[in-house]
């Protein structure tokens, strides 16, 4: 390696020794230690790079950008506030549509007289339903039930004031799983977003109704049922996160 080749490589060597462990620089660095001309050049190059880098670090974002980012991200998870043209919305809608079409096709071939669907099927739908997609009214707009869900003192699995007819009247998002009506409510509790899916117990085979957890990727679901209704709760993180509010 001649000095010009070494310079070519060392121009990509970040000042401050951050790349010291990168084998790609070893030979050129060793050469700079033994060749005084190259060593002087490297010292000058590093001083120049350090000076420029320091100037970039002295450029500060305008006041309010951080808050705008944090607020914008929070708003991005709300259908009410996100503009419809945002690509993420369309991707989420497309993903949901794909899941719905798949399930609808399954229903088509099985026919309307099929037995109640398994609650696992609804749990699978929930996991495929993007957490960032919030279609339809948010919990804030769903009156007593919405407020109840967002109140951190309430345990989700006990005593939720659910009225399916009222949810329908409030234009709550409804999906059809194997021909059965399911309502989905998006709510925020202590800064974390969740989707709660609610259906009639008679439409889904929930076994004993005891909570069953499932993790997939960065999301988890828990499915359970009481005498009247079947539920699936989905959120980001491990199952323990869901257990904490169940």
């Amino acid at each position: 390696m001649n000095n010009e080749q070494a310079k070519f490589i060392l121009r990509a060597y970040r000042p401050g020794g951050r790349d010291a462990g990168d084998a790609a620089f070893c030979e050129a660095l060793q050469q700079a230690q033994t060749d005084p001309v190259l060593g002087t050049w490297l010292a000058r190059e590093q001083a120049f790079d350090t000076a420029v880098a320091a100037k970039l670090q002295a450029i500060f974002p305008p006041a309010g950008l951080r808050e705008a980012i944090l607020t914008g991200a929070r708003m991005s998870t709300s259908a009410r506030t996100r503009p419809a043209w945002r690509p993420a919305t369309w991707m989420a809608l497309a993903a949901s549509l794909a899941v719905i079409l798949t399930l609808a096709a399954t229903y088509w071939f099985r026919g309307p007289g099929a037995a109640p669907a398994g609650l696992d099927q609804l749990a699978g739908f929930a996991l495929a339903d993007p957490l960032s997609a919030h279609i339809g009214p948010h919990a804030d707009q769903l009156g007593e039930l919405g407020a109840w869900l967002q109140n951190p003192v309430n345990r989700i699995s006990s005593g939720a004031p659910v009225d399916l007819a009222q949810l329908k009247a409030q234009n709550c998002r409804g999906v059809s799983i194997a021909g059965h009506e399911v309502f989905e409510i998006c709510f925020n509790r202590s800064g974390h977003w969740y989707h709660l899916y609610i259906a009639r117990r008679s439409d889904f085979d929930a076994g004993t109704g005891q909570p069953r957890f499932r993790e997939q990727g960065l999301q988890s679901v828990v499915a359970w049922a009481d005498q009247r209704l079947a539920y699936v709760l989905m959120g980001a993180g491990k199952a323990e996160t869901l257990r904490g509010i169940l």
Partner: peptide, 24 residues
């Protein structure tokens, strides 16, 4: 441009908030 830079930074985090969760 400062305004465009702010928009771009904000848009990047917006995308993270909506899609970045899939990054394992």
């Amino acid at each position: 441009n400062q305004a465009d830079a702010c928009d771009l930074a904000q848009q990047t985090f917006f995308i993270w908030a909506t899609k970045g969760q899939t990054l394992r």
